[in-house]
Each structure stands twice: as structure tokens, then as C-alpha cells.
Design a protein around this nucleic acid. Structure first.
Length: 730
DNA sequence: TTCCAGACGTTTTTT
DNA sequence: ACGTCTGGAA
């Protein structure tokens, strides 16, 4: 019998034991959802289901890794019959292989939608007409696969920019959406399975006038991608779905995946739901887990309707609710419950805490952003002194740049922190540069990569690079590449071209499958000189490239390496090491956007910048259902906290940036949705920049300094007992 | 055509 | 405050 039963409560156990057929699990925040999924998989394996017959889809790579890790741990301590894996001969215990090594067959397929799509498309893309220049493309080991490139959003944006050039001029009005906007319009349309017109109407009404042009650009972009033998993130999903429209392919995979589990179902979009429906069509053993209250990815076309309508899509679905919360005190949950109750479209859930009574969440307005940062730093020191470990403390914020002030303050206070977010490793310019060199070798038709590589050379700009790319289309062997530039370029650009040829030749001197060796060739070339000449931080950049090389060593196939780099996979570098300093314990306070904090928990959580304009962000409010989504975001933030929750906001907007992103003064409307009895409200007891109030001495008039306008600070007066929410109240 | 300097507007979130 | 874009000079 299963030994791990004792870890579970009844709610959870019922889900794990549920029989076959479609099933929806509404898992409230902190209800142990990850545990339920991993235990369910373990349970299936124990029943004798083979790993390759189980598909586990997660939303992020991080989540996939986490699940695999937990599964390995779980399985290591559990007796699994021979049918499902490789039992150790002597003990009969299942011996897990390395995490992520799914060739072992011991772990089920687990990954993001994009990852699973890539894995299958790698094999079947030729069916959809993707293929590399056969004269140039040779893979080492038998050459399966079509050698397509995966474009990340940067690449796709620059390709779109190329397409848009021709249409911009035609538009009579001077205004035209930027490549970035074009990309998000095109992408949103594909992910939501709607037309460009629909998207414009819904999200970008101001661009409806150029709808026809945008449509043409989208068509041209589609062709360009095809020509470049490339797929962007959306193509991975769309093509995967198309592939499943092929009877034979569908049969193979629908039969293979006897059990399908989808995590974070509330964050799936239309295409993803369609894919799942196809894959589950044969066996119908589909378990989706999610919390509609935590749907925070609508900007990626995530559609809450998927989870809200699950029972309609799968009429015989069983529905379970997990409402026991293991994480937070009742005081914290009450705040979360009360705020989320303002949302109309949702499943009603009442989170029940298992924790003993605790502290009320505290509200601490501060004079301005620096006061807020100072306050947080001081409180963190206090918490640490009271034996809350550093890694049990997190500061969460709406947008990445909200943390700037705080970072300075933490550094001053000597608090070590770990920043989640910022420019991700594979998105750093120099990393992308080097990858581009490898990409042109792997997929000769990869226009985006060629442009990137060529434009680094002196004298070669967009025009010259474009000419070369055009000419390369007629080239059929690697030797002829060298003479292309001579034919189409003018005097000035040629020197740059010869320089490129030198790099190209040194790459050809390496084995084509050896990513690490190829990176060597690039780092050893004039690219290094370029880095050293152009950037003060060239040392850091070269260090990054060394890291990239170490990472590359794990791969025996160039194709696999490049794909995983594009999909941001299996590579967690300690982000921005210069932003942290070493301390002996290695424990660090976490700074994170709320989005990235999903699924995590800390003993103490600060939520910054809860001011109107910043959170909910003005921008989001302009969208349909924007307010409800922001509210869910707030809900996610609050439910990360186990014991201590601090809410702060600056009463004055920062200098000079009132009109943008930052706060425009006054508290977030979400704070107003919390009953005052639920909060430990310090609105009258704030101590920030020059602001010292004490409401115990009622009857006195307090003086405080107004630091707005930078210069001469003048005293402000406030009557004791008045409700000070923002400086405008003064 | 490229390159540079100054103007501009800009920021939510992720695969 | 920063990165991207535009317009003009080389």
C-alpha cells in the first residue's frame, strides 16, 4: 500500500484516488496543489501505468522542474511494481534516474506546452512542410528532424519589423504601431484563435484604421518565417494543433497518453485547450488543476473561460474543490477572501486555514518611495533579528522596476537579496549574439540570425545585410558562402564581410554538433574584440559566455541546445551576481514580481507600491476585465504569505514620473476593499521622510516636512485623528 | 548607407 | 531614467 497516504488530507486523497474520466480540481491558494499532482502521478505509476503513457503539462519550466524533482523524491521512498519502471533488482525499489533525463523512461513526459510541442514537432515538422536546405543541412546522427529554428520574441519582433517596413509608408496617417505592438497583436490573435480584427477591436481600437496593413504584415511575417524555416512560440502551439489534425499522428499520441494532467489550467489559452482536447480524445483521462482566482496571464491570451467552462466542455467531469489552506494564517486569508469577493466571474471558494490565529496584516503608508524602501529594509532587519530566516522573507511588486529604490536601500542596510526577473540569461544581447552564430550554422535559412550576425560588422547595416541574406538563398554549399559578400557589397561593407568570413571559417573548423566548441570559435574571434571595445562590463559579458559554454557542454546535439536556449529551459543561472553579495548562510531575501511569485510561499511577505496608478496599473485598467485581473494578482500576492504580511505604498508620487507607471498618489483601491477591522492600520503612525506622527497625543497639531518639488521643504499641518491616506488629505 | 547625437516615449506580466 | 527612434551629417 502507498506509504505517503499519511501526508494527505481527505480532500487531497479523494482527488488522487479518483477513477478514470475527465476531472477538474479547483485548488485554492496554498491547498497543496503541486503535491496533489505529483502524488497522483506517483499513484498512477504505482498502479502500473507506464511513464510514457502519462503526460504532465505545466505552465512554466520552473514548475515542470519542481514537479519532476518532487516526483523523484517521492518515488525514491516508495515501492513501485516492476511494470512501471526499473526496479532495483535486490530491493524492488524504484530507482529514479537523473531529473530531466526523460530518455530514461522512468519519468512521465513533463514540460510546458511549448516544450511538449517542440519535442513532437522536432520529429514531425517535415509533415507540415518545414525543412532545411537539404544541400547544406546534415545532422550527425542519422539526421532526423527538420532543423527548424525556434524564434524567441526578440527574433520574431525583428522579423516583423522587417515586414512592416513596406507597409508603414503606405499608411497616410503618420502613426503606425511599433514592431512590438504588431507582434503582440499578431501573437494574441493566434493564441486566442481569433482574427486580427477581433483583437484590434478588443484591445487596440486605436489601430483599427490600419487593420488591413496589419493583416498584410501578419501574412508576410508568416511567409518570412516559413522561408526562414523558423517557428516562433505561437507556431509551436499552432503547428502542434495542426499536426494533431492529421489522423495518424493524432491516433499515435491520443492513444499513447492514457493519462493527461494539466497544471495551472486557468492560465491556458484557447489553442492550448484545443490541444489538450485532442490529446485526451481517445482515453478521456484528463485531470486539470487550477484556481480561477489566480488567473493572471490574460495578456498572453490565457482565457479563464477554459476553467470556468470545463464542466461544459467535458459534461461527465468530476469536480473537486480543495479549500483547505495549509499556508497562511486565517487573518491573511480573510484579507484575500474579502478582496477577491469583489470579482464577479468566479467559482466561489472559501479558504479555510489550518494555521493557528496570527497577526493581522499591517498597512504602512509612507511619505514617498524612498520612505517606503527604508521602511521595508528596517522591517526586514527586525524580522531577521526575530529569527525569521532571510529566505523566508519576500518583497513582491507589480512591475519589475518598482524595486529599484528598494534595492539601493537593501544594499545600504547590508541585506542580501536575490532578485527574480530582470533580463533573463538567454535574452542578454551578447548571449543572443553568440547563439545567432550557431543558429546560422544549424539552420542556414535563419534570416533573423543572419541579420543579427551581419549587422555586427562595421559598414554593414540593414541594407547590406538584407542583400547578403537575399543572395544566400541561392547558395548551396558552405564554401560558396564566402564569396557571396564580394558579389553584392560595395567597397566599404566588404571589409566587414571579410571579417565575418573569418569567424565563419573558424566555426567550420569545429564539429557541427559540438555547441561548446562552436562557442569557443565565436569567443575566440573578433566578436571578443567587439565586446571589449564597446562595453564597460565586457568582463561580465564574457563571464556569461563562459557560463553558456558550460551549459552547452551538456548537449551532444546543436539542435537540442539551441531549442532549449530559445525556450529558456533547464538553465537557472544565479541571476545578476553583482546585485547580491555573499553571506555565509547563503540565505537570501527574495525580490520578485508577483507573476513570478506564483506558486511560492514565504513566512513574511511585503507588497510594495500599493498605490493607485501603480497597482492596479493604469495600463491594465484600460483593458477589458483589467480590474478583475489586477485583483486576482493582488490575491496571488497576499496568499503567498504564511505569517506576516505588510502592505505599503508611497503617499506622494516619485518626482518627474507622475504620469507614467508610477503611482499618482493615494492608496490602491484594493486597500479600500479590505475591511478596516482586518488590518493593523498604521496610516496615522507612519514614519517616513520627515514624517513623524503619533496619534496618541490627540489634540496636538503635528508638523511634517513636504519633500515634494525637491527643493525647499515646507511644513505641512495635519490634525491628529484625521484619516491620512494620501498627502492630498493634508 | 551608416553612424551619431539628441529627441522621444516608455514599461506589466512569460513561453 | 533608460533604451529606442529620428533626422541629419559623413
Amino acid at each position: 500500500m502507498i506509504e505517503y497516504e499519511k501526508d494527505l488530507n481527505n480532500e487531497q486523497w479523494r482527488v488522487i484516488e479518483q477513477g478514470d474520466g475527465p476531472c477538474l480540481v479547483l485548488a485554492g491558494a496554498g491547498s497543496g496543489k503541486t503535491r496533489v499532482i505529483t502524488y497522483r502521478v506517483a499513484y498512477l505509476l504505482e498502479k502500473g501505468i507506464k511513464p510514457e503513457n502519462i503526460l504532465l503539462v505545466t505552465f512554466t519550466n520552473k514548475a515542470a522542474d519542481e514537479m519532476k524533482k518532487r516526483l523523484v523524491q517521492l518515488m525514491a521512498s516508495t515501492v513501485i511494481p516492476a511494470a512501471s519502471g526499473n526496479p532495483d533488482d535486490s530491493t524492488g525499489h524504484w530507482i529514479p534516474n537523473q531529473v530531466g533525463n526523460d530518455k530514461s523512461g522512468n519519468l512521465p513526459w513533463a514540460g510546458t506546452f511549448h516544450h511538449i510541442a517542440y519535442k513532437i514537432l522536432k520529429q514531425y515538422a517535415p509533415v507540415l512542410g518545414y525543412k532545411n536546405n537539404p544541400a547544406l543541412y546534415r545532422t550527425a546522427a542519422g539526421g532526423s528532424g527538420s532543423g527548424f529554428s525556434v524564434l524567441d520574441s526578440d527574433d520574431s519582433e525583428s522579423l516583423i519589423k522587417l515586414c512592416a517596413k513596406n507597409y508603414k509608408i503606405e499608411g497616410e496617417s503618420k502613426k503606425f504601431p511599433s514592431a512590438k505592438v504588431l507582434q503582440s497583436i499578431i501573437s494574441y490573435a493566434r493564441n486566442s484563435e481569433t482574427t486580427i480584427n477581433d483583437v484590434l477591436e478588443l484591445k487596440y481600437p486605436q489601430w483599427m484604421i490600419v487593420g488591413d496593413q496589419i493583416k498584410s504584415i501578419a501574412d508576410e511575417y508568416y511567409l518570412k518565417k516559413k522561408e526562414a524555416n523558423s517557428m516562433d512560440f505561437d507556431d509551436l502551439l499552432v503547428n502542434f494543433l495542426n499536426l494533431l489534425n492529421n489522423e495518424q499522428v493524432l491516433k499515435k499520441f491520443a492513444e499513447q497518453f492514457k493519462y493527461i494532467l494539466v497544471d495551472e489550467y486557468q492560465d491556458t489559452n484557447r489553442i492550448q485547450a484545443s490541444i489538450i482536447k485532442k490529446l485526451a480524445s481517445a482515453h478521456k483521462n484528463l485531470l486539470v488543476v487550477g484556481d480561477d482566482a489566480q488567473s493572471i496571464y490574460s495578456f498572453r491570451a490565457a482565457d479563464v473561460q477554459n476553467i470556468l467552462q470545463f464542466a461544459k466542455d467535458y459534461p461527465d467531469a468530476k469536480i473537486f474543490k480543495l479549500e483547505t489552506n495549509y499556508r497562511s494564517s486565517q487573518e491573511i486569508l480573510q484579507v484575500a477572501n474579502e478582496v477577491i469577493a469583489n470579482n464577479v466571474k468566479q467559482y466561489k471558494k472559501e479558504l479555510k486555514s489550518l494555521q493557528p490565529a496570527g497577526l493581522k496584516p499591517a498597512l504602512h503608508p509612507q511619505m514617498d518611495q524612498s520612505g517606503e524602501a527604508e521602511f521595508v529594509a528596517q522591517k526586514i532587519l527586525e524580522l531577521i533579528k526575530n529569527d525569521v530566516p532571510e529566505n523566508e522573507i519576500a518583497v513582491l511588486f507589480r512591475a519589475a522596476h518598482h524595486s529599484q529604490m528598494l534595492e539601493m536601500e537593501l544594499a545600504k542596510a547590508g541585506i542580501v537579496y536575490d532578485y527574480r526577473g530582470g533580463v533573463r540569461f538567454f535574452e542578454r544581447a551578447h548571449v543572443k549574439d553568440v547563439l545567432a552564430y550557431l543558429r546560422i550554422l544549424h539552420n542556414f535559412a535563419d534570416t533573423a540570425a543572419w541579420m543579427r550576425v551581419l549587422m555586427h560588422e562595421e559598414g554593414i547595416g540593414p541594407a547590406a545585410a538584407g542583400k547578403i541574406v537575399e543572395a544566400l538563398k541561392n547558395v548551396t554549399n558552405t564554401e560558396d558562402v564566402k564569396i557571396v559578400g564580394q558579389e553584392v557589397l560595395g567597397e566599404k561593407a566588404r571589409a566587414g564581410w571579410y571579417n565575418f568570413v573569418r569567424i565563419w571559417e573558424s566555426m567550420l573548423g569545429q564539429s557541427k554538433t559540438d555547441a561548446s566548441g562552436l562557442i569557443d570559435a565565436v569567443i575566440g574571434s573578433s566578436y571578443k574584440d567587439y565586446l571589449e571595445a564597446e562595453f564597460i562590463d565586457s568582463k561580465d559579458r564574457l563571464e556569461d559566455l563562459a557560463q553558456l559554454q558550460i551549459f552547452a557542454k551538456k548537449y551532444s546535439e546543436l539542435e537540442q541546445f539551441l531549442a532549449e536556449a530559445s525556450l529558456q529551459e533547464s538553465f537557472q543561472i544565479t541571476n545578476n551576481q553583482q546585485r547580491t553579495t555573499n553571506n555565509s548562510s547563503g540565505k537570501k531575501v527574495v525580490l520578485s514580481t508577483i507573476h513570478q511569485a506564483k506558486g511560492l510561499e514565504w513566512s513574511a511577505v511585503f507588497i510594495l507600491n500599493l498605490s493607485s496608478g501603480a497597482f492596479p496599473s493604469d495600463r491594465a485598467l484600460r483593458e477589458d476585465n483589467g480590474l478583475e485581473e489586477e485583483r486576482r494578482l493582488f490575491y496571488v500576492a497576499v496568499t503567498r504569505a504564511k505569517k506576516h504580511l505588510y502592505l505599503t505604498y508611497p503617499m506622494v508620487a516619485g518626482f518627474g514620473r507622475q504620469s507614467f507607471g508610477g503611482s499618482d498618489g493615494g492608496p490602491s483601491i484594493f486597500l479600500g476593499e479590505i475591511g478596516s477591522d482586518l488590518l493593523d492600520d498604521h496610516s496615522l503612525l507612519s514614519s517616513g521622510n520627515g514624517l513623524v506622527l503619533n496619534d496618541e497625543e490627540a489634540g496636538v497639531t503635528y508638523e511634517l516636512e513636504d519633500h515634494r518639488q525637491g527643493g525647499a521643504s515646507k511644513p505641512l499641518r495635519i490634525k491628529p485623528g484625521s484619516f491620512l491616506r494620501s498627502v492630498e488629505d493634508l
